[in-house]
Design a protein around this nucleic acid. Structure first.
Length: 615
DNA sequence: TCTCCTTTGAAGCCA
DNA sequence: TGGCTTCAAAGGAGA
């Protein structure tokens, strides 16, 4: 039974910034004393979560926390303004996190499917089984895990459920998380799915397409370097006897990739549609099943040609050129997606459909705010997914390091221009210029709690583990998890989630407790960004402090909209009133509003439901 | 054609 | 150890 973590109450500043999880070793015990009173509430909350009580997943010890965007942003051009403007107009779902009625499920390939049988499986012919996640809890290199995974080959669904499942990535047009979470469509899109999700029309091309095929391998199909090792068509998913679930080249991805890769002609076209041409290597990145590996990208071939020419001119350099060529041909293994990225992939289409926005920057802004508006448990789902992603990625590419993808470390990726440090840049804009449409300024508290930080708060830093103090991986979690630090375990997240009701807010010795509960309850995304000069602790306090006086707000609408923003779109009257003011935020919000996102359909959005009175 | 924008999170690098 | 930087996705916009 999940236990309530007591860390949530005192760190209001982090309330929305963190997702705590129950299993953090001794930490749990320590805080358990302080949280006994909250435990009951936690139990109540936990009962609301359709979490697998039978899930023996020992990886529950994780905690999620988010830190506010420590980003400095440049407002250097109108592009930015236009983006914000677009976001303002379009973001109607700020406080309307997509409802996830049930706890997330993962869609895994249905191994019982007749389509799966040996070798003849078409990537598009897969069916999926619903299963609860977290599922993948495979310790890297663990033979036991491998064995357990091997068992997954059993057609028995029980096996499937009992074993871990690789996080897989959908093809281009397929919802990336579909196979991972069941949030079956109605989870995320209660009611009728948006037109673009009707699975009949390609959102990009507008070309009709097969009905939402949960087909192609999703997140981590197969390493190209391991292709030849896997006899089973679902080798990337189903471990073969004596083989790892995700066969990995002994030396990791850094080893030369096998060239003896077979390519399914049909998959070539599939790949072409799935990836940009330069990302669709002739034979790389393809499993024998033809399943592309989204995490692997072959470098642009164009660059090779020049080298080849040079090599042909100079025989002495020819070999070198060839070597370089080979080197360049090595697929680029991408970083595993983090929780937010997963969320973005999933929700982007929705936002695009709802808001008719195409500009990714604007969409991302909306998504970022929606992300903040998500409840703990909802975010926990993504953290959990991300954790599994990382785990899977680690298993797939044991030798891979994020450094490998740093500029210049692989071909096809040019060094990213270093963002000039813009001192205070953007801050002045975001400080007191809450985006009317986005309703709130982004959280930029650089001291946002993470891991232990989230659990204990700033005033209990002595309880933090070292890495957490450094904003690194929480070693406690690592210890508990065994391999990778990760976000919150889904089962714990809820428990440690901040109170979802005023009564659940535990008093804090900080100044926060003097704040009206309505303010404490406000979603983090509603909080005002603290002044840049404030200390982290001040940030935290301020993060829960009421917004600055309207006088400090942008008179061009920020102030007006801040009033409406505080309620987001929850209060129609409020929206209407703000509309009457002609604020930018109120304009097309309705166009962006989706009832599917309304809190009414998402009862588990306590924070998002909280309103804050600017008065 | 390439880079930027924009978001959050993870991780690497450097002092 | 803290702070900064890069990269992951995405697609339009601009150079």
């Amino acid at each position: 039974m999940p236990q309530l973590n007591g860390g949530g109450g005192d760190d209001l500043g982090a309330n929305d910034e963190m997702i705590s999880f129950k299993d953090e070793g001794e930490q749990e015990e320590k805080i358990s004393e302080n949280s006994s009173a909250e435990r009951d509430l936690a139990d109540v909350k936990s009962s609301l979560v359709n979490e697998s009580e039978t899930n023996q997943n020992s990886s529950s010890d994780s905690e999620a926390e988010r830190r506010p965007p420590p980003r400095s942003e440049s407002f250097r051009d109108k592009t930015r303004e236009s983006l914000e403007e677009a976001a303002k107009r379009q973001d109607g779902g700020l406080f309307k996190s997509p409802p996830y009625p049930g706890y997330p499920f993962i869609m895994i390939p249905d191994l019982t499917s007749p389509y799966l049988p040996n070798g003849s499986l078409s990537p598009t012919a897969r069916t999926y089984l619903q299963m609860k996640w977290p599922l993948l809890d495979v310790q890297a290199g663990s033979l036991q895990s491998r064995q357990a995974l091997k068992d997954a080959r059993s057609p028995s669904p029980a096996h499937i459920v009992s074993n871990k499942v690789p996080v897989v990535q959908h093809p281009h047009h397929v919802h990336p998380l579909t196979p991972l979470i069941t949030y079956s469509n109605e989870h995320f899109t209660p009611g009728n799915p948006p037109p673009h999700l009707q699975a009949d029309v390609d959102p990009k091309t507008g070309i009709p397409r097969p009905p939402h095929p949960p087909d192609i391998s999703p997140y981590y199909p197969l390493s190209p370097g391991t292709v030849g090792q896997i006899p089973h068509p679902l080798g990337w998913l189903v471990p073969q006897q004596g083989q790892p679930v995700y066969p990995i080249t002994t030396g990791g991805f850094r080893h030369p990739y096998p060239t003896a890769l077979t390519v399914n002609a049909s998959m070539s076209s599939l790949l072409s549609s799935r990836f940009p041409p330069h990302m669709v290597p002739p034979h790389h990145s393809l499993h024998t099943t033809g399943i592309p590996h989204p995490a692997i990208v072959t470098p642009n071939v164009k660059q090779e040609s020049s080298h080849s020419d040079i090599g042909s001119l100079n025989s002495s350099k020819h070999q070198d050129a060839k070597k370089e060529e080979e080197k360049k041909k090595q697929p680029h293994i991408k970083k595993p997606l983090n929780a937010f990225m997963l969320y973005m992939k999933e929700m982007r289409a929705k936002v695009v459909a709802e808001c008719t926005l195409k500009e990714s920057a604007a969409i991302n802004q909306i998504l970022g705010r929606r992300w903040h508006a998500l409840s703990r448990e909802e975010q926990a789902k993504y953290y959990e997914l991300a954790r599994k992603e990382r785990q899977l990625h680690m298993q797939l590419y044991p030798g891979w390091s994020a450094r490998d993808n740093y500029a210049g470390n692989y071909q096809g990726k040019k060094k990213k221009r270093k963002r000039e440090k813009q001192a205070g840049e953007g801050n002045e804009h975001r400080e007191y210029f809450p985006n009317p449409c986005l309703s709130l300024p982004p959280i930029t508290d650089l001291s946002a709690p993470k891991k232990c930080r989230a659990r204990f708060g700033l005033d209990q830093q002595n309880n933090w583990c070292g890495p957490c103090r450094r904003k690194k991986k929480c070693i406690r979690y690592i210890q508990g998890e065994g391999s990778c630090a990760s976000p919150p375990s889904s089962d714990g997240s809820l428990l440690e989630s901040p109170p979802s009701s005023p009564s659940m807010i535990s008093p804090s010795p900080s100044s926060k407790e003097s704040k009206p509960q309505t303010e404490q309850m406000q979603p983090l995304s509603l909080t005002m960004k603290p002044p840049p000069l404030l200390s982290s602790s001040q940030h935290q306090h301020l993060s829960m402090a009421p917004p600055p006086p309207l006088a400090l707000l942008d008179n061009s609408g920020a102030g007006k909209t801040s009033g409406s923003a505080h309620n987001g779109s929850l209060d129609p009257s409020d929206v209407s009133s703000s509309r009457s003011t002609g604020s930018a935020s109120s304009r097309p919000i309705s166009a962006c509003h989706s009832h599917s996102l309304l809190p009414s359909s998402a009862p588990t959005q306590p924070l998002s439901l909280v309103t804050k009175s600017i008065d």
